[in-house]
Design a protein around this nucleic acid. Structure first.
Lengths: 154, 154
DNA sequence: TTAAATGCAAATTATTTGCAGAAGC
DNA sequence: GCTTCTGCAAATAATTTGCATTTAA
């Protein structure tokens, strides 16, 4: 985990008059020890491997903090539960492509899309604040070879 | 309501061996009698104005039918409930800009974005199946004049 | 010391589902 | 007549919250 993230969170916590706790530390450690997306439940499991006293409630109370701090993004992939993406610190403008065959999520950056969106918004009389692009696509490898190496349950 | 939509739904219903019922008729009528997005609860209210016997369960059971039929799209705007968009029949590729000031939703088409997404997907080894673009933006009118005529609760 | 944080369990809320009766074909 | 639909009310499941207790500063 990049220590810059931890520092950024601690600064945020201090500035808001909040407190550094062992449970939060475990959740933060777990949250940024991976580049995968995860659900609240999955984060709970990961955090408990570090500190088994972490409760579900604390995870649910900590997640909005990390989102407010700007180090974690809440993502909607059309399921009944939210996903969290820890990769915005390193790639602030990335987008997602989701494979409908294997559920793999590919993150990509593209400056042209960013520019285009800014133009479109301006034309409509708005200024871009945040943008979400989600491409659902089929895997060419699967189509050509009948199988794809990206299989992963989702 | 464009009768083409109704016909398309009835064909779908027949082909699947399903049945035409008065409740479904009311829900369909309500669903395509507007170009606004709505929630299940809002659709229930609209359908009940046409046929007060329509129940919440039937609305929740009919919505996936209309989505499967391809005439209605389920949308995630980051709330705890889903929205439904009846405008894809007329504008199959439109995207959404959401004003964070007034919650207004502006729909827009842009062929350049479509092209760009196809290219990006191809480069990554995928073929686009569906795409979602959501731009959250601030209203220039509000910024300049201190008020905006688009106010609408969300 | 004292305000914030925690775990627990109960509450909340959109959506789903089992079932017995009603209705389409 | 047989099967699908319906309304109702209960079930489900992710997330939130009240409260008594613990803990950081």
């Amino acid at each position: 985990m990049d220590s810059g993230v931890r520092q950024r969170i601690y600064d945020f916590i201090q500035q808001k008059g909040l407190r550094k706790t062992t449970q939060r530390d475990a959740i933060i450690e777990a949250a940024f020890n991976t580049t995968e997306h995860y659900t609240a439940e999955e984060l709970l499991a990961m955090a408990r491997k570090i500190d088994c006293s972490v409760s579900r409630a604390t995870v649910y109370r900590t997640l909005p903090l990390l989102v407010a701090c700007g180090v974690l993004k809440e993502m909607d992939f059309g399921k009944d539960y939210k996903f969290y993406d820890p990769n915005y610190v390193d790639h602030p403008n990335h987008n997602h492509l989701i494979c409908v065959d294997c559920n793999k999520i590919v993150e990509f950056d593209d400056v042209n899309i960013d520019t285009l969106e800014t133009c479109i918004s301006k034309r409509l009389g708005f200024s871009v604040e945040r943008k979400t692009i989600r491409i659902e696509a089929t895997c060419d490898e699967l189509k050509n070879k009948g199988a794809c190496g990206k299989k992963k349950p989702g």
